[in-house]
Amino acid sequence: MAEFVAVGDAHFTDSSGSGGLSKYVQNPDKMVADEIRRGPVKYARDNGISNILLLGDQYDGPRASYSGQRELADVVRENPDLRWHAILGNHEMYSEVPENGHALELFDQFGLQNLTIYTHPTDVKIDRAPVRFLPYPHLDFSDRALNIFHNEVYGSKSDSGRTVKKEGMNRSKAVAVGGHLHTGHKVRNTYFPGTLYQNNFGEQLPKYFAHIQFNSVADHEIEFINHDPVYKLHTVVLSSRADLENIPRGKKNLVKLVIQDGADVNASDYSAFSNIVLIKNFRSKEDLRAVLTEDLSNAEELVVRVDDFFDVWVESLDVEQSMREKIVDVRRRVLNKIVK
């Protein structure tokens, strides 16, 4: 019986610095590497498992950042007795043809003998079990093997909860474990363990990785293993002052604040919460529904920077405009002194 630990989309940063929680935390690549260490790697060691599967989108773009490459390489290098198997995801490729470039190209130069990267569909046997590796966009499942892929299948669920039902999509009942979708779920015999941490606001907890035991299609077991990420993303809706109590404290509880127009709150009421990283407004139930799912649909958020937050707070103050201007001027002079 072959055993594996499968890890979904890690999203280490790309060359632009985008990826994972890079908008909100320092050293985002180290954060991701540490999640892999204390979750999947520890579980593999505790349970005598020697194979770890990386299900694609190890990186957020087709050119990996230096820190992203270093952190993933360090995790692999620290565990030479574990065998790592990685497939390409859509984020990591310039096109559907890997020869046009992808994020894992340089790993061939790192001398990591325990890492195998699959850029094309490949059939192998691991501990006598048949495995088919299917990097993005391939979906040619084998009905005799464990299929490792990065894509959607008919009936799978997007992170916003929408069921994917497109004409011509894969409806196979073959045994498969896939990346690409961040929320853990199963459809037919296809398992999506999801990610180790919330990449976007709106992604739900809990988070998972997968423990796979596979001998044959008739003799296998796949289990989702709960993983508790260090950083958690919370969306808090403010319709009244009483809702302020719902804002969690702690720098590792990152908050998206969604404020109803006309709510009896102003910026000074929540300015003490340094863990608020996004602020949005809504007028109607339709607006609220859109705001709650926009990060999942667009995979990008409106970042509220300190300057923006300060401007909102100043405008909310019940003082003369001349006093607002003085406050802005004092802040400017203090910051200038700090910079000097």
Rank of each mutant, 00 (worst) to 15 (best):
S158G: 13
S158P: 08
S158Q: 12
D159S: 08
D159T: 03
S160K: 11
S160W: 03
S160R: 12
G161Q: 08
G161E: 07
G161I: 05
R162N: 11
R162A: 13
R162E: 15
T163F: 07
T163S: 09
T163I: 13
V164D: 11
K165R: 14
K165N: 08
E167Q: 13
G168R: 00
M169T: 03
M169Q: 12
M169K: 06
N170I: 04
N170C: 11
N170Q: 11
N170Y: 04
N170H: 05
R171P: 05
R171G: 04
R171A: 09
S172V: 02
S172R: 03
S172W: 03
S172Y: 03
K173G: 13
K173M: 12
K173L: 14
A174E: 10
A176H: 14
A176P: 12
V177N: 12
V177M: 14
V177P: 10
G178A: 08
G178R: 07
G178S: 08
G179A: 02
G179N: 02
G179I: 01
H180Q: 15
H180D: 12
H180I: 11
L181P: 03
L181N: 03
L181T: 02
H182Q: 08
H182P: 12
H182C: 09
H182A: 09
T183S: 14
T183V: 15
G184I: 03
G184A: 11
G184E: 05
G184V: 03
K186Y: 05
K186S: 09
K186E: 09
R188M: 04
R188V: 04
R188I: 00
N189L: 01
N189M: 02
N189E: 09
N189D: 10
N189Q: 06
T190N: 07
T190F: 03
T190W: 02
T190P: 03
Y191V: 13
Y191T: 10
Y191H: 15
Y191C: 06
F192S: 03
F192W: 05
F192G: 00
F192I: 01
P193D: 01
P193H: 00
P193Y: 00
P193K: 00
G194Y: 02
G194R: 02
G194F: 02
G194V: 03
G194A: 01
T195Y: 00
T195G: 00
T195K: 00
T195A: 08
T195L: 00
L196M: 05
L196G: 06
L196K: 06
L196E: 04
Q198G: 10
Q198C: 13
Q198S: 14
N199C: 10
N200V: 06
N200W: 12
G202Q: 09
G202I: 08
G202M: 09
